[in-house]
């Protein structure tokens, strides 16, 4: 993509955001405990919702991307399956953070959720690229990384400024990682790096 095309699409994106912001703040329904009155919260959860389009079966794909052709990801499943995954402008893309299809590369691993199309492809609602969620023990702490033990393997968890967050015993996610301790057990959700097998940390949930 040329720089001028890039700025043009960036401009369109900003215009779109401006339009959506006006709608989101101006014409919105306010939903909150006060707006709907005091609810018995435990009883408030809904009955299972039927799929919006019961004719379209839900689909899931898992594997490594072997090719990218325009908006279609060619994915080799880990157990010999092959998937063609269509991305649209309604497809959410996660790769360490919420991003766009341009961030996806050949060699990345992915999970995709969407709808099975009659032609055998999957129209993706959401794709999560390189996402991993591992149970680890913190073995070392440095300025820009955590040394993690995952099973018998040693993994480096990179701390990414403005992205990595921590949650202490279920508390709200915070950018403050200063309460991490060596020897602590933790769940690390992040983006796996295919090149070296290490992880860029999106969030670290700390236990006791």
């Amino acid at each position: 993509m040329s720089p001028s095309q890039h700025s043009e699409s960036g401009g369109r994106r900003l215009d779109r955001r401006r339009f959506l912001t006006t709608a989101a703040i101006g014409g919105a329904t306010i939903v909150g405990a006060s707006a709907l009155g005091g609810l018995d919260a435990d009883a408030a959860f809904a009955e299972p919702m039927p799929s919006l389009d019961t004719a379209i079966p839900a689909a899931f794909a898992e594997g490594r991307i072997v090719a990218i052709n325009r908006n279609v990801l060619d994915v080799a499943g880990s157990h010999g399956e092959r998937y063609l995954i269509q991305l649209t402008n309604a497809t959410s893309v996660w790769k360490l953070r919420t991003t766009t299809a341009e961030a996806i590369e050949v060699g990345d691993g992915l999970y995709a959720r969407g709808a099975a199309m009659p032609d055998g492809t999957i129209a993706a609602d959401a794709v999560w690229v390189n996402i991993v969620n591992v149970y680890v023990t913190i073995r070392g702490i440095a300025k820009d990384r955590l040394h993690l033990q995952h099973g018998s393997a040693e993994v480096v968890g990179h701390i990414v400024p403005d992205t990595t967050t921590a949650s202490y015993l279920g508390g709200a996610l915070t950018a403050d990682l200063s309460k991490t301790r060596i020897g602590q057990e933790a769940q690390v959700l992040g983006a796996w790096r295919p090149a070296d097998g290490n992880i860029d940390i999106a969030r670290v949930s700390l236990g006791h």
């Binding site: 955001r17 912001t21 919702m49 309604a90 959410s92 919420t98 609602d125």
Partner: peptide
């Protein structure tokens, strides 16, 4: 029930 994707964008 109306949401289909995960987070698409934020600002």
């Amino acid at each position: 029930p109306v949401v289909r994707s995960a987070l698409l964008d934020h600002w």
